[in-house]
């Protein structure tokens, strides 16, 4: 099976994010960048599928500046076979991203596209669903279990109030939730091997599609600060205040 996995370069989730004083963006000095954590889960799942089936190919794709090759290299070190980097300096919205990915899918013809359910920078949670619409493919978002049956894939999804199971024939799109798996670390031999693996660069202009964003970010603000509360000394004091002052119990 050929699996395409999307990889986005995002700030490390442990990094403190600050808004620039003029509201034009976030302060990027001293930020460490990593693979979007949900995409890392997608890479891991693709590798496990390939290992279980004993054959197949895992192809990574990222969109962005040349530096995104760092994250692709990490994914290759985890075990992916090769990577594609769509070079694009302009801001994209999720629809633009989906349109680029649809072109890559057309060229690569994978059986399955695995993506993170959302990127932890823009938190949009849209690209997978949009790609599925553009390709008219079935989708299973928020996956916590993926199983292959005779001629379809069965996916357990994390939904409100429980777990939902859906299935569909391939090709299709699956987006990952937190508990699907625990991604591996790249091994030293993996890192060595990754140096020789291919990262093919494609300029976005070569794809011949309109990626003008329809979503514009005008301004960024830090969230409103909450006034500091009070420290209480004991459980008794806490219950007393909740009862008499806050009147919530």
């Amino acid at each position: 099976m050929k699996i395409l996995v999307t990889v986005k370069r995002v700030p490390d989730p442990e990094t403190t994010i600050r808004v620039k004083p003029d509201g034009s963006g976030i302060v990027t000095d001293n930020i460490k960048y990593v693979i979007n954590p949900f995409d890392e889960i997608a890479i891991e799942e693709a590798l496990r599928i390939k290992e279980k089936q004993g054959q197949g190919e895992v192809v990574l794709v990222s969109i962005g500046a040349k530096v995104a090759s760092e994250q692709l290299r990490t994914g290759l070190a985890m075990g992916a076979d090769r990577a594609i980097l769509v070079l694009c300096d302009q801001e994209l919205d999720s629809l633009g991203v989906a349109r680029i990915l649809a072109k890559i899918v057309e060229k690569e013809a994978p059986d399955l596209v695995l993506m993170g359910k959302q990127a932890i920078d823009d938190d949009a949670n849209q690209a997978g669903q949009m790609l599925a619409a553009l390709l008219n493919w079935p989708q299973a978002t928020f996956a916590s279990k993926v199983e292959f049956m005779d001629n379809y894939v069965q996916v357990v999804r994390e939904v409100d109030g429980g777990l939902e199971t859906v299935r569909f024939p391939l090709p299709g799109i699956i987006t990952t939730d937190l508990r699907l798996n625990e991604p591996r670390y790249a091994s030293l031999p993996g890192i060595m091997k990754a140096r020789k693996k291919e990262i093919r660069e494609i300029a976005v202009a070569e794809l011949g599609i309109d990626t003008t964003p329809l979503l514009t970010v005008h301004k960024m603000d830090p969230p409103a600060k909450k006034a500091a509360g009070k420290k209480v000394e004991s459980v008794q004091e806490l219950v007393h205040l909740l009862h008499t002052e806050a009147k919530v119990i």
Binding site: I26, D121, L214, H218, M220, D221, A224
Partner: peptide, 14 residues
Amino acid sequence: PMYAGNVIATVSLT
């Protein structure tokens, strides 16, 4: 919200 709620963005759709 963006960036896990660290940023509140004002956006428009065309």
